[in-house]
């Protein structure tokens, strides 16, 4: 029993390092060579989308750094939740317990907020959460690109949630889904006004949902780069390095919190679609 465990453990460790080396090589080889622009870089340059191979135009199918970092987040997901749980052990290994922690965290969130009948949509929510979390956290690597800083990406995520929730609301509840906007606990005079406000806030949801995520991540990355630009000035550099360290710690927190917030708001919207009357 213990021998088998240690054997699979050492195999897992070797597989882990092999994947890490391959990924590292892939990142280095496909990255832009350093020193083209020297230290005079622009804070917004990190968000540029460049083709992976050559310098051509970017059409919809061109493999770009978007492809690279999204692919890496898929690899990270596979590494954590598929290779990490390979042992299916009753007493989990470290990787497996992290995977189970993530599973339990989102599962409990969906169950608590969206209710028992929301559990059916757990895989969708888990997909959103893992995509955002892995994009955010991988984006904190130096020289990386973060897909979630782009409004195009987060807007698609938010619109997916919005359309899904709206369609689901109408399919599940029919016309009574509109009761979401008709606040029956308010006095009769106020109800039309409240209905307008509720309607507007309903349609603002995807806007704030997407801009919150993109804005938070973009702001953090831009701030890190602004401080990094100060590091070129000798007198400023210690301060700059200290500030980058502090902001980096904060960004690690923000990367997680934003994934959490996006997911929890998705659950709240899902709850509204499933039970519009309370």
């Amino acid at each position: 029993m213990t021998e088998a465990n240690s054997k699979s453990g050492s195999f897992g460790r070797i597989a882990f390092w092999v994947i890490l080396v391959v990924v590292g090589l892939a990142i280095v080889l496909t990255g832009k060579p350093l020193g083209e622009e020297g230290l005079a870089f622009h804070p917004m340059a990190q968000f540029e989308i460049t083709p992976l191979f050559g310098d051509g135009d970017i059409s919809w199918y061109t493999p770009t750094n978007v492809t690279k970092w999204m692919g890496l987040s898929v690899l990270a997901l596979v590494g954590l939740l598929v290779i990490g749980t390979r042992g299916r052990a009753i007493v989990p290994s470290r990787m497996q317990s992290v995977g189970e922690l993530m599973y339990g965290f989102i599962y409990k969130m969906v169950e608590d907020i969206a209710g028992k009948d929301g559990v059916k949509y757990f895989p969708y929510i888990m997909t959103l959460f893992s995509f955002i979390l892995f994009s955010n956290v991988l984006g904190l690597l130096p020289m990386s690109y973060t897909p979630t800083t782009h409004i195009a990406v987060t807007a698609v995520l938010a619109m997916l949630v919005f359309t899904f929730v709206t369609v689901l609301g109408f399919v599940k509840n029919g016309a009574s889904f509109l009761g979401l906007f008709w606040v029956s606990s308010a006095p009769m005079v106020l109800r039309p006004v409240l209905a307008i406000i509720e309607l507007i806030s309903y349609f603002v949801r995807p806007v704030s949902h997407s801009i919150r995520l993109a804005g938070n991540i973009m702001a953090g990355h831009a701030v890190v780069k602004v401080f990094a630009a100060f590091a070129a000035v000798t007198i400023m550099s210690p301060l700059s390095i200290a500030a980058i360290t502090a902001v980096y710690g904060l960004e690690l927190l923000v990367a997680f919190i934003q994934a959490y917030v996006f997911t929890i708001l998705t659950c709240v919207y899902l709850k509204d679609a499933l039970h519009p009357n309370h």
């Binding site: 199918y61 770009t64 898929v74 749980t85 497996q96 888990m126 997909t127 959103l128 995509f131 195009a152």
Partner: peptide
């Protein structure tokens, strides 16, 4: 370009999660 790759990524992630990872973890639990 971004939207295309995003949809591809979400599709792959959903496949990996719904077909392999989540059933496995839930069975282990």
């Amino acid at each position: 370009n971004q939207i295309f790759w995003l949809l591809v990524t979400l599709g792959v992630m959903y496949f990996v999660l719904a077909r392999i990872a989540l059933p496995r973890i839930s069975s282990v639990l």
